[in-house]
Write a protein that binds this DNA or RNA. Structure first.
Lengths: 164, 164
DNA sequence: TATTGTTATACTCTATAACTATA
DNA sequence: TATAGTTATAGAGTATAACAATA
């Protein structure tokens, strides 16, 4: 979890047994490092949190809005906590909610015009932060990473506790 | 942030401009997916949290213990919050603290015997979880990932806000 | 009965700043 | 004055479970 691994770099290939652990520890540390920086900047520049940004990003690509349960799945935030997140964003005027159809249990959230405008700017700046933070990464490495991480994500999904 | 990217997979290489963003979003989502699972298991099996596990792991590789400030750096947890973490772990009997030298400002934490035993078991099981979750990942991909993520971490470190 | 979402709760993490004691 | 760590505080995240309304 921590940054320092405290082990020589040369034996990465040799010691295959703990390779998964090494990948995970590095990934966790790196993600923590970057996400702390991104969270800090989101807060100071936009007064937003990462889960809020994530939620807005999901709605931004769905002009018709999303049901709260679907938002919960996509953001990996539990239903009960979506209620609070949506409440805060609605209070800020960035999203609105409605019950669109006949099923009165359903709530759909979507971006307001103000929310769409605000998110566009946030996304633009956010992307530039990532380019900046990853400036020293070889583009080929970058391209490889996308696929490798996808593979990792699929594997993890397949082996979560007892489902599907 | 979210899991679904909602874009066709084929253009990863073509659209180089947003490659950094794509890497980051996938990495964040994957890390969240896995760490939620790991946190859940740590809690149910050992009553521990991820930051606690991280702290214990740092102490496990330092038989002489670590100063709190050093723990703070390695775990990327602020000084003020280390106090609380250390307090909880000490209350559980897993670590002990002392002022070893003449400088009475310094506090060093180290694993107790019980803590070392408990962590050994936690680490063993934790490693098996990772092997399980990453079972479908090609070993070569795994080996590549270690280096790629290291490169990414170094880049991010170099471009954090105004330091070093 | 199952589903959608809300409420309630408890705990932890996260971040900041002011503070104490020591050097 | 600078450093090591503590205390205080505020706000969010995280997880669980019980619950209401609807289907």
């Amino acid at each position: 979890m921590g940054v320092a691994e405290g082990e020589p770099a040369g034996r990465d290939q040799a010691d295959g047994r703990k390779l998964e652990l090494r990948v995970w520890l590095r990934m966790l540390a790196t993600t923590k490092l970057i996400s702390q920086e991104i969270r800090r900047r989101l807060r100071t520049e936009f007064g937003a949190t990462l889960p809020q940004f994530d939620l807005l990003a999901q709605l931004d690509r769905e002009p018709d809005g999303l049901r709260l349960g679907e938002i919960s799945k996509r953001t990996m935030v539990t239903n009960g906590n979506i209620t609070g997140l949506v409440g805060r964003l609605e209070a800020d005027g960035l999203i609105s909610t409605e019950t669109p159809g006949d099923d009165r249990r359903v709530t759909v959230a979507r971006l307001t015009e103000a929310g769409r405008t605000a998110f566009a700017e946030m996304a633009r700046v956010h992307e530039s932060w990532l380019r900046e933070l990853m400036a020293d990464v070889d583009p080929k490495t970058c391209a490889t990473l996308v696929g490798s991480i996808d593979q990792l994500q699929r594997s993890a999904r397949n082996h979560l506790s007892e489902e599907e």
